[in-house]
Simulated scan of single mutants.
Amino acid sequence: MMSSITVRNLDEAVKNSLRVRAARRGCSMEQEVRQILQQAVAAEQVEEINFADRINRRFVGLQAQSLPLPPRQVTRRPPDFDKP
């Protein structure tokens, strides 16, 4: 099913630019707007990455190798439930 939208209060200069752009591409203004919207949404979908990649991108500039590591502590012995 195809949907339609109405764009109100569109600046006349923008409308004229769309008309000229569509004419250059040999398509209707409506088709031009559809293509622009599809490309804008597709660009956002490409940017969706998994959580691990997002974390990696955020901290990629840090020199993680130079961060001090706290000393390891001795782990405690697990409880022995067999003893009375």
Rank of each mutant, 00 (worst) to 15 (best):
V14W: 08
V41I: 14
P71H: 02
G26C: 08
R19T: 11
R25D: 15
V14S: 03
N16T: 09
A40G: 06
A43R: 13
V60M: 05
V41E: 05
Q39A: 15
A52C: 09
N9S: 12
Q63N: 15
A13Y: 03
A13N: 12
M1F: 08
L62Y: 11
V14A: 06
N50L: 06
N56R: 14
D82H: 09
R58H: 12
R72T: 00
V33R: 05
L67E: 03
R24L: 13
Q31S: 14
L37G: 07
D53E: 15
A22L: 09
E30L: 02
R58F: 07
D80Q: 11
G61Q: 12
K15V: 10
S28L: 02
E12Q: 15
D53G: 08
Q31W: 01
R72M: 03
T75M: 13
D11T: 04
R57Y: 10
K83H: 04
E44D: 11
P68G: 00
M1S: 11
Q63C: 01
P84R: 09
L18I: 07
L67Y: 08
Q45C: 09
E32Q: 14
L37K: 01
F59T: 10
E32D: 03
Q35L: 13
M29V: 12
K83S: 12
P79Y: 02
L18N: 12
F51I: 10
I55V: 14
G26S: 06
A43H: 05
T75W: 07
F81Y: 05
L67P: 00
R72S: 07
C27G: 00
A22Y: 01
A22D: 03
V60W: 04
M29L: 13
E32C: 14
R77S: 13
P70T: 00
V60Y: 00
L37P: 00
E12V: 14
R54N: 06
R72I: 01
S4I: 01
A52H: 09
D53V: 05
A40S: 05
G26V: 03
L10K: 01
L18G: 09
N56F: 12
V41G: 01
A40M: 12
P68L: 03
M2T: 10
P84Y: 03
L62W: 08
F51H: 12
L67F: 14
I5K: 07
L18W: 15
I55G: 03
S17R: 15
S3W: 01
V7F: 04
R77V: 09
Q73D: 02
M1G: 12
S66Y: 02
F81A: 03
F81H: 01
P78C: 11
S28N: 04
Q45E: 10
L69C: 05
P84I: 08
L67G: 02
K15Y: 07
P68R: 00
N50H: 06
P68M: 00
A42G: 00
Q45R: 13
A22H: 00
R8A: 09
D53C: 10
P84E: 08
A13W: 10
K83W: 06
Q65Y: 06
I36C: 06
S66W: 07
P71E: 02
R76A: 12
I49N: 03
N16D: 09
S28F: 01
I5L: 08
Q39H: 13
L62I: 10
Q31D: 13
P84M: 04
P84Q: 08
L18F: 13
R77L: 13
R76E: 00
